[in-house]
Write a protein that binds this DNA or RNA. Structure first.
Length: 155
DNA sequence: CCTAATCTTATCAAGCGCAGCTTGATAAGCCCATTAGG
């Protein structure tokens, strides 16, 4: 059926490691996320989601605090520097026509597959489930964009 | 209730082939995205 992945429960030890890494760099590259995943014994995709959620929480918290003490006056270009030092992304995947065919067919059948369907697909075509999920996200996104660009006279 | 999982939208960037398109990967979401599991 169409259900979510089981909710991950991080232990305190795991969180300690993740938080420490987050404080050092809230935008880890793929290699760092993989290393962390190994260290806390989970999947890289869970580490990725954890960082995304933590950034969302942290940034909202940041906004509510003015924090104009004696630190920000010294280096104003800190933000740019932060972006520049971003680590490498995951290497771009490339799918065979056969894999794409299977994905597209599944998409036509259901653009919002649950975890079971995604994992089954992943197994079937031999790519990680996280890539399947990203593929569906991108596909849906572009489907929506195209719809906006060429609005049909109906609706 | 807390926060992992999910969704949309926008953007970066690899690959191809040599200008600019296609598409996988990543980030943000604003009175602070929504949904839902335990």
């Amino acid at each position: 059926m169409n259900q979510r992945r089981n909710r991950t429960r991080f232990t305190e030890d795991q969180l300690k490691i993740l938080i420490k890494a987050f404080d050092q760099n809230p935008y880890p590259g793929y290699a760092t996320k993989q290393r962390l995943a190994l260290e806390v014994n989970t999947d890289e995709s869970r580490v990725q989601i954890w960082f995304q959620n933590r950034r969302a929480r942290h940034q909202s918290q940041k906004k509510s605090e003015p924090d104009e003490d004696l630190e920000s006056s010294q280096d104003q270009d800190h933000a740019e520097e932060e972006i520049q030092s971003r680590e490498d992304r995951r290497r771009r995947s490339s799918y065979t026509p056969s894999q794409l065919h299977t994905l597209i067919q599944a998409f036509t059948n259901n653009p919002y597959p649950g975890i079971d369907t995604r994992e089954q697909l992943a197994k079937e075509i031999g790519i990680p489930e996280s890539r399947v999920q990203i593929w569906f996200q991108n596909r849906r996104s572009r489907f929506h964009v195209q719809r906006k660009r060429e609005p049909h006279d109906q609706d």
